[in-house]
């Protein structure tokens, strides 16, 4: 059997993991992304490469993975069901595995009406859960979805997202259980701003023993302004942002520094929650702050297992 990913080794050894997100550029020139990768490499165990996030056309996740692996970064490629049918998804998984990608995050994907190709035909042949199940079977049984045998199986560590802040709230832990059943080995959650809410959800997760079946990484987003928090509260579907947090940002003199402090506090508290096995930092358009966040949360150094 091929070698496990660094992320899998860290999580299965019981260590607290750190993942962070890199958004590929909106063009064919990867120079800035590569420079960024050189700066923040070493501050996370693996880096998620988004798949046309919010349906904005960007350099592909797998293409970015090829470039960043050369820089010594371990990628988690994100794959959504929005733009590819089961033929393309399975093919891309085989391609990703062949070039050495070992972590995949299976997503349904933001709807394309959010993006910059609104006239697109949404595919949604599969959903996140059937995608997980398909990839799991490809790996474990060497069979593609139709049941036909593959010449060889992909080597892949499977992740999924879960959003404790979306409706129906009481279904969210059950839905994560479905993802685990379907093949998820690690979970990266939606960004957490309401920690009390998240803790209530984690209590449900523990009641179902899910924290023993899957590695949960709490999602965090560092923000630079109260406006950004308000935007997420009001405009981003499936997010809960407490007014108290917006107030705290409003009162802060140095908003950026306050945003960093809020994020660090969040990470510190997530470390204390039973069943949380890591953090996932989504520093959208602010990736260079990741090393500072990880250092100040006393999660450095990150070492390969």
């Amino acid at each position: 059997m091929s070698e496990q990913s660094n992320l899998e080794k860290i999580l299965s050894s019981g260590k607290f993991a750190v993942t962070a997100e890199i958004g590929p550029p909106r063009g064919a020139d990867p120079t800035e992304m590569i420079e960024l990768a050189r700066k923040i490499k070493g501050s996370a165990d693996a880096f998620n490469l988004t798949d046309n996030q919010t349906a904005i056309v960007r350099l592909s996740s797998i293409g970015s993975a090829v470039l960043l692996m050369k820089e010594g970064i371990e990628p988690v490629i994100q794959m959504t069901c929005r733009d590819r049918n089961r033929i393309a998804l399975q093919s891309d998984l085989l391609g990703a595995s062949a070039i050495g990608v070992k972590n995949v995050l299976c997503l349904t994907g933001d709807h394309h009406t959010f993006g910059n190709e609104k006239s697109a035909k949404g595919v949604f042949d599969l959903d996140s859960i059937s995608l997980l199940n398909t990839f799991k079977n490809m790996r474990d049984t060497k069979k593609q979805l139709s049941g036909e045998e593959l010449d060889s199986a992909p080597n892949i560590y499977l992740g999924a997202a879960e959003n404790p802040f979306a409706t129906p709230y009481e279904y969210r832990a059950i839905r994560m259980a479905k993802k685990v059943k379907a093949g998820a080995q690690f979970i990266q959650t939606q960004a957490i701003f309401d920690l009390d809410w998240f803790e209530r959800w984690m209590a449900e997760v523990r009641k179902m023993d899910l924290h023993e079946k899957v590695h949960i990484l709490g999602g965090v987003i560092p923000v630079k302004s109260a406006g950004a928090l308000r935007y997420m509260k009001n405009k981003v579907p499936g997010m809960i942002v407490p007014d108290a947090l917006i107030g705290r940002m409003n009162r802060a003199e140095d908003k950026k520094e306050e945003g960093i402090q809020i994020c660090i506090e969040m990470i510190e508290r997530l470390k204390q929650i039973e069943g949380v096995h890591g953090v996932h930092i989504m520093a959208v358009m602010w990736e260079q702050i990741v090393p500072r966040l990880v250092t100040d949360s006393k999660l450095m150094p990150r070492t390969s297992v």
């Binding site: 994907g109 009406t113 959903d127 059937s130 997202a161 959003n163 979306a166």
Partner: peptide, 29 residues
């Protein structure tokens, strides 16, 4: 469901509404 989901609601289901249109009920809710 805007994404024809078969396995329950996506993460964009907000207050029982669809992420595509806040006036449309989330089918899975």
């Amino acid at each position: 469901c805007a994404k024809s989901m078969r396995n329950g609601p996506c993460g964009g289901s907000s207050n029982g509404k669809c992420e595509v249109d806040p006036d449309t009920d989330c089918a899975w809710v």
